[in-house]
Design a protein around this nucleic acid. Structure first.
Lengths: 247, 247
DNA sequence: CCGAGCTTTTGATCTGGGTCAATGCCGCAG
DNA sequence: CTGCGGCATTGACCCAGATCAAAAGCTCGG
């Protein structure tokens, strides 16, 4: 069995950002951060702001590891973060790619149930666990928001279980591309960023990098998608991509 | 590809119970129901009781289907219920087996994201959605309980994604048996009920019935487990079962 | 007790995707 | 510009688990 080695990434301890990749990071991070917190906090915004620290994370850096004491909660404001679990022998399953606006770190036990690592340079808001929980006590609306997010995450997880348990390689790749395209705000024909490596895609879809590569090339060859470069794709024939995804 | 046909089950419209199977159902259902609701409701117990209707569901009967309007929430008090998603061609992924005390039906959208069906005869408490939501409004403790449950379900879902994406057939079956044994209250050496069919196990583990059967027989042959009958097993060598599960 | 209709087990074969092995590509350092 | 190291692609081969097939148990109605 192959070891999904941690690539480690080049960036130094989250200190300074590498040049922006894939257009995922934008300039006015502060504006975005506030917008995300507003969506998150609602009426509790001011208090939420008060306990927030902003965190920069260079691509490849670890936010936390499975089993670490869960003393913080986070919202992602810029960039892409992956969350994953690993087996003792190094096999890895990425359980999600988080995009701006996503929440992570909720652990009703004392330690994180998964690891989190930046795919691209990322910016997050961090809330200390105890203070956040106290805030939750005073703001039921915040709790409701959290419940709603947890419940849609659960639905996504079930969808992914269906993919992992019952779909073919071709269907998995097609489903993945469609999900990315759906979440990408840009217009129909614009290229969609594919910021993660083939390794990450493979570990998300329960495949190998070779199979991911083959399926992507096959989809390109059959004219379903276009691959302008390694980290972008364009949906050319949405009908056939939908059919291939077996939704 | 093989169709995971709905077995339909013999029981008539949830009217009367077939004889108890696997010892999953006990006699004083009312006592259990109250106990479960208490765990669920905490201080809101009285109000929760007031909006509760008890539901009996014969083995094989459907509680609700994916896409149905989500007008009810449920707690399972007796029996086993499976929740699953299906593809258009009949492939099925069971995303969970629910045991007494488990909650189901939370849908922050207007329709259920999955189907639910009784594995054994089952007894549930049903709460009308709107009334339950109103109750949630007045009882933050209830909301907190729900959030805590959703978050541990999410952790379980991620564990299952790891299993489906990265574990071998042998590891999947071993993990499944261990999880069942862990949830079973009885003492160490007592046989653990295995109320679901091989078909259900296969659709939960992303395998075929033949592979499940082969792995179970192999585990029995190697002395790791004992299979007194089709619907019970006993952990004989916990160390080796743990090792086989690749936790 | 018998037989129909199941579920489960067991055996034989096939194949999708994994593994192994080059080769190509691209970005960065010198 | 050149070489190096890390992705990504491509090809050849292999194997875990699917598929196909058949036999063996259960269970239930009569």
């Amino acid at each position: 069995m192959r070891t999904a080695g941690n690539t480690g990434g080049p960036g130094g301890e989250g200190a300074s950002f590498a040049p922006v990749r894939c257009g995922v990071l934008c300039e006015d991070c502060r504006v975005r951060a506030v917008a995300v917190c507003r969506a998150m906090g609602g009426p509790a915004l001011d208090e939420l702001e008060a306990i927030t620290t902003r965190i920069r994370l260079a691509a490849g850096r670890t936010l936390f590891d499975e089993g670490d004491p869960a003393d913080g909660l986070f919202t992602l404001t810029e960039g892409v973060v992956k969350i994953f679990k690993m087996l003792a022998d190094g096999r890895r399953q990425i359980t999600g790619f988080l995009l701006p606006g996503d929440f992570l770190g909720l652990a009703f036990f004392r330690s994180y149930a998964y690891s989190a690592e930046a795919v691209t340079d990322a910016l997050l808001c961090r809330f200390p666990r105890d203070r956040f929980m106290a805030l939750l006590e005073r703001h039921p609306a915040l709790e409701k928001e959290l419940l709603s997010r947890a419940s849609s995450e659960l639905a996504a997880a079930q969808e992914q279980m269906l993919l992992l348990g019952r779909k073919s390689a071709k269907e998995r790749v097609a489903s993945f591309l469609l999900a990315l395209a759906r979440r990408h705000p840009g217009a129909g024909a614009a290229p969609v960023p594919l910021p993660m490596s083939r390794y990450d895609i493979a570990d998300y879809l329960g495949l190998t990098i070779e199979t991911v590569s083959r399926e992507l090339q096959a989809a390109r060859a059959s004219g379903v998608i276009d691959l302008p470069d390694r980290h972008h794709f364009r949906v050319v024939d949405r009908q056939r991509l939908l059919a291939a995804a077996a939704l």
